[in-house]
Design a protein around this nucleic acid. Structure first.
Length: 497
RNA sequence: GGCGACGUCGCCAAGUGGCAAGGCAGGGGCCUGCAAAGCCCUUAUCCCCAGUUCGAAUCUGGGCGUCGCCUCCA
């Protein structure tokens, strides 16, 4: 099977073959640390986290590089507004970013260079570009000459001449051509600055990605990722800089994720409709956020809302419940006569087919929504098998169910989705007091307390004392512990939220 | 004005030529003392029109609608 991915450069799905067999070199543009990241940013990082996880799962060794832009106009502006040094802003939001990524379950990059730690190589690349006639100095700033690079506009499919007429390009008389962009900016008073051959200044935004990717990965590297709003001008400019400086192709596959929207509009600071990732994670587990986002293909726009989070939470419950049901079934003695051979064979076959179908979906340009559907299909099959055969299972049936539960867990791990409650959550302390008042329990152990409560409820039920039986269940429910009656007796589980 | 994307069940959404995945919500049934969970059944010919084709949600043309980029943006 071949992995295919959509390449923005060709606007088509292409067979993927990395520069070096078995190894994938990828670079994803990171954040500018001037504020907490919002969920739109998070979506992009999540999409590429899954790309990276899937490639790894598929057997590639993945080098994953992501920059952190910690010197920039927006940081300086935020610093001025707060009256603190830009470095303070950058440090604060760098830390917040790393923490948020960790909480979302994003795997750390192989390397995560900061712009401020890459100044020297950026100066070197600028010098190279001046030497080769692609850049020029003016008033202590250095600009890239767009006209010097014949392929300019290829990625974003723009025509330089058409752009000049309609576009609102920043007027700057120091530029030879309005479309030229800054490689190096002369420092204004009070701004962060570094020494350079052109005086004190700081790097332009586009430069760091060109420099870091070349340093860490070489050229051409395999996958360059970002959201669609970076295609122009950011990636177009990176491409021009890098190829002009190295004389070599820059990137083999350009991948761009769709934008997240709120109420069918782009999320943006100016519209005031942005939602911070950290605030969402206060309300919902990472798995819910991941499930929500992965139910939509990464290139499609995704409309975000509280309702959709709730729906995703329900979907996650379905996954969690399946694992719990299987776990409950597996702790019972395997002494039944066994499930019908046809049922066993069908389930076994479904299990075997799942991985191939999952892989086929993911191989098709990372179709996480299709792959998720495969997983849900297997879950339904397993639930059906269990519902029909729970009371007759033997060792073979239980082994199959266990294998199935493991497969679901493994496949979800490719999405970075771990099931809360797949491992026993601790019982709340309140059960002890409840057991003391309702079941006459005198000890101090939550597990014993719950057992005492269940025993008391069983006794009440056998006497058809429904009031007493329900008192136990309602009491536990208020503590977040749910009782479910199964063929093997009552079970409890701790439900989050 | 230029470039581009999208329009599939109540909501979300996969699906680029061959009988329309999946999730959420709703209805009916089974199970249950009640419940929870689960299972079964149940709701679409794919914005409209016209073409190409044996056959189209999938290709072409036109129309309507929504959104994005063209300026910092994930």
């Amino acid at each position: 099977m071949t992995l295919r991915l959509y390449n923005t450069m060709s606007r088509a799905k292409e067979d993927f073959s990395p520069r070096e067999p078995g190894r994938v070199l990828m670079y994803v543009c990171g954040p500018t640390v001037y504020n907490h990241i919002h969920i739109g940013n998070a979506r992009t990082f999540l999409s590429f986290d899954v790309v990276r996880r899937y490639l790894t799962w598929r057997g590639f060794e993945v080098s994953f590089i992501q920059n952190i832009t910690d010197v920039d106009d927006k940081i300086i502006r935020a610093a001025n507004e707060e009256g603190v040094p830009p470095a303070t802003i950058a440090a604060r939001y760098t830390e917040a970013f790393l923490e948020a990524m960790d909480r979302l379950g994003i795997l750390p990059p192989t390397a995560q260079p900061r712009a401020t730690e890459t100044i020297e190589p950026m100066i070197s690349m600028t010098e190279r570009l001046i030497e080769t006639g692609h850049a020029y100095e003016a008033d202590g700033s250095v600009y890239f000459s767009v006209r010097s690079f014949p392929g300019y506009g290829r990625l974003s499919r723009r025509d330089i001449d058409e752009m000049r007429s309609g576009a609102r390009v920043e007027v700057d008389e120091r530029k030879t051509d309005p479309l030229d962009f800054a490689l190096w900016k002369a420092a204004k008073p009070g701004e962060p600055h570094w020494s350079s051959p052109w005086g004190e200044g700081r790097p332009g935004w586009h430069l760091e990605c060109s420099v870091m990717s070349e340093m860490e990965l070489g050229t051409p590297f395999d996958i360059h990722g970002g959201a669609t709003d970076l295609i122009f001008p950011h990636h177009e400019n990176e491409l021009a800089q890098s190829e002009a400086a190295t004389g070599r192709p820059f990137v083999r596959y350009w991948m761009h994720g769709g934008l997240l929207q709120i109420n069918a509009e782009k999320m943006s600071k100016s519209l005031g409709n942005f939602v911070l990732l950290k605030d969402v994670l206060e309300q919902h587990p990472a798995a819910v956020v991941r499930l929500l986002m992965l139910q939509t293909h990464y290139r499609s726009p995704l409309d975000f809302s509280e309702e959709r989070l709730t729906e995703a939470a329900s979907a996650l419950e379905r996954l969690v419940n399946m694992v719990r049901l299987v776990r409950w079934a597996c702790v019972r003695p395997a002494d039944g006569p066994g499930a019908p051979p046809d049922d066993l064979a069908a389930l076994s076959q479904a299990l075997e087919a799942t991985r191939g179908r999952f892989t086929a979906e993911m191989d098709d340009d990372f179709n996480t929504a299709g792959a998720l559907a495969v997983v849900f299909g297997l879950v339904r099959h397993a639930n059906g098998f269990l519902a029909a055969n729970e009371s007759v299972l033997d060792a073979e049936g239980l082994a199959l169910l266990d294998a199935l539960q493991r497969e679901v867990t493994d496949l979800l791990a490719v999405f970075g989705v771990t099931l809360p409650g797949a491992d026993e959550e601790p019982l709340p302390r309140g059960v002890v007091a409840l057991a003391a008042s309702v079941a006459g329990y005198a000890g101090d152990d939550p597990v014993e307390a719950v057992n005492a409560l269940l025993a008391a409820r069983e006794e009440a039920r056998s006497l058809k004392d429904w009031t007493q039986a329900d008192a136990v269940r309602v009491g536990l429910q208020e503590l977040g512990v749910v009782i479910e009656d199964t063929p093997a007796g009552a079970r409890v589980s701790v439900r989050g939220d």
